[in-house]
């Protein structure tokens, strides 16, 4: 019991540190790829601290509600993951964060945030379906949705789920808000919709959402590590490789339209995952 409580406190803190650090690496690496020097690794933390100390200003009370709910859900999902819970429950809890992000963004009449919310809904749809398919694959291979059963597997899941891993990479790109799928709120400061779903969140609210975003990415990378859960070095290297690959892709790709994302990106990913699932059964 004490252990669980300690874990419940430690995991979100560690994840915030890790997520912020990853974001720092991302910004620095991107700058280097553009032959700039880039900000220090601590930059994301400084940004968030500054945001948290800014004035609170809302155009609709929901904008104050949403970020807290979003961050809470993200942290809670991570704690569940650390406790080796039921993957479906983790995904359902994780989903809540996205729901509230969109609700807050839609609550403002700004056309930018409205348009971006519609796109965000499609992005959510793309990510959620693929994650649930991964949960299904987990069940078909281990006979349970509980993560605790996974360590008993003799060989890495990746051997049996190669196509699903490709689909997961798509979901990771969408979730990290990276080109070519950064339609609803680019992770860089600027896009054609101002800042997409984040446009209307001011100061501390943006800060909370930024932390929630870090936590989400950590959860995704943790799910990524499930694909090679048999050896500890691989559990670190595989997500790291995926993360770096997304950043590379971000720097060479242009933004696609949502039609393209939904039709080709998600369509292909879904078909690949479905194929992979039907193998497992057979």
């Amino acid at each position: 019991m004490m252990q669980t409580a300690a874990l419940a406190l430690a995991v979100p803190c560690a994840a915030i540190l890790l997520g912020g650090l990853l974001s720092g690496i991302d910004r620095r690496l991107t700058a280097r790829l553009q032959s700039r020097q880039g900000p220090p690794l601590s930059q994301p933390f400084l940004d968030v601290i500054k945001l948290m100390a800014k004035e609170r200003m809302v155009t609709n009370p929901w904008q104050a509600f949403s970020p807290v709910a979003s961050l809470g859900a993200a942290a809670f999902a991570l704690v569940f993951f650390a406790l080796q819970g039921d993957l479906l429950v983790i995904l359902f809890v994780h989903m809540v964060g996205g729901v509230f992000l969109v609700l807050g963004a839609m609550a403002s009449p700004s056309p930018y945030s409205q348009t971006a919310s519609q796109r965000e809904l499609w992005q959510m749809l793309s990510c959620e379906t693929l994650l649930f398919l991964i949960a299904g694959a987990l069940y078909l291979t281990t006979g349970s949705f509980r993560l605790s059963e996974l360590s008993a597997l003799p060989e890495p899941l990746l051997y049996r789920l190669p196509l699903l891993f490709a689909a997961f990479f798509f979901a990771l790109t969408v979730k990290m808000r990276k080109s070519p799928f950064d339609l609803a709120g680019c992770h860089h400061a600027h896009q054609e919709l101002v800042r997409g779903v984040f446009t209307e969140y001011v100061g501390p609210y943006l800060g909370l959402l930024e932390i929630a975003h870090w936590l989400d990415i950590v959860l995704y990378l943790a799910i990524c590590s499930l694909f090679w859960a048999t050896s500890t070095p691989a559990m670190i290297l595989l997500p790291l490789a995926a993360f770096l690959a997304v950043i590379m892709l971000d720097n060479v790709a242009a933004r696609l339209t949502w039609r393209w994302m939904l039709g080709w990106g998600w369509g292909a990913a879904f078909v690949l995952s479905a194929l992979n699932l039907s193998w497992l059964k057979g």
Partner: peptide, 20 residues
């Protein structure tokens, strides 16, 4: 996933107003 989408969209539409 579709269910999630249309409910969030409907709820967000009901919320959308700049009244503070």
């Amino acid at each position: 996933s579709f269910t999630l989408l249309y409910w969030v969209r409907l709820a967000g539409t009901l919320l959308a107003s700049g009244q503070t």
